[in-house]
Design a binder for these strands. Structure first.
Ligand code: SF4
Ligand code: SF4
Lengths: 136, 136
DNA sequence: TACAAATAAGACTAAATTTGTCGTATATAA
DNA sequence: TTATATACGACAAATTTAGTCTTATTTGTA
């Protein structure tokens, strides 16, 4: 199945919300989770991850929250997905970081590998070209 | 996660195999499953589905099997995915056939819905443009 | 006609992944 | 000192995907 995970979907909703507030005002996890009826704990973790990967910046404590620093034109969908530790690799053999042993067993004889790599390249461009601006 | 399911992956491998044999020779499920070390039963079901949806044609009995009728240029990745009852709808709200009650609960207040629909349109074109020829 | 090879179809189980929860720690403004 | 907010990781529940098993049907050939 080709689809956004909830994690990605919630991240995009939150990013859109934060982006629309401009670069001065803070948004809190609670504020967003209330607004969209998303589990607070879940969304909080997602925002933490985005902050850790510098998609957004965070400020702790009272009156803190999250906001944007970068221009919405400079943050791509690729970056967002990757910062969530998600992937848009169409097949196992195309995953960047795969230190796990769950690798493909038939990679040796697989004739799909090469053609699918070409499709993957086109998909990479696709996701690189979509920015937060497209959500605003 | 954006990725091909095994079902799709196996389907593509099989289709590639069948397509490369031309339009005269038959390929059997056993032949393909042996060649690529794919579970026979699983692959068989996939091929049955592809046949049911006229991606390939099937002939029962001894010396039977599957082969192509259409030109590889005329079968798109979209059609293959859909014929397997899989989807490339990025979000729940974008699924074509969703008579189930597992619909999105926050669709009313969701501000991501519209921008994601535009991205979906571009993705549809992406998958419509890839044909079996791209696997050969 | 009997048999073997092959597709057809669906129920069922197992495995993997995703989604969501909980508890605890840390920082900061008032 | 307290309330508010992020940070982080372990865990549990739910869902989806992957794989197996069983039975039926079709068809060429010995
Ligand atoms: S090697 Fe082939 S079967 Fe294995 S993951 Fe890559 S494309 Fe899929
Ligand atoms: S309405 Fe919004 S949250 Fe619901 S599925 Fe569509 S995009 Fe996702």
């Amino acid at each position: 199945m080709i689809k956004f995970s909830r994690k990605t979907e919630y991240a995009l909703i939150a990013i859109q919300y934060i982006a629309n507030k401009g670069i001065t005002e803070f948004s809190t996890a609670k504020e967003i989770s209330d607004n969209y009826n998303i589990s607070y704990e879940l969304l909080a973790k997602i925002l933490q991850r985005l902050a850790k990967n510098n998609i957004i910046t965070s400020t702790k404590g009272v009156n803190g929250g999250y906001k944007f620093l970068k221009s919405p034109d400079d943050v791509t969908l690729s970056e967002i997905i990757e910062s969530l530790n998600e992937s848009y690799a169409l097949t196992r053999c195309l995953k960047k970081n795969r230190p796990n042993k769950t690798d493909c067993q038939i990679a040796d004889c697989c004739t799909l590998k090469n053609p699918v790599a070409i499709i993957q390249n086109r998909l990479n461009i696709f996701f690189d070209d979509i920015t937060i601006r497209h959500l605003m």
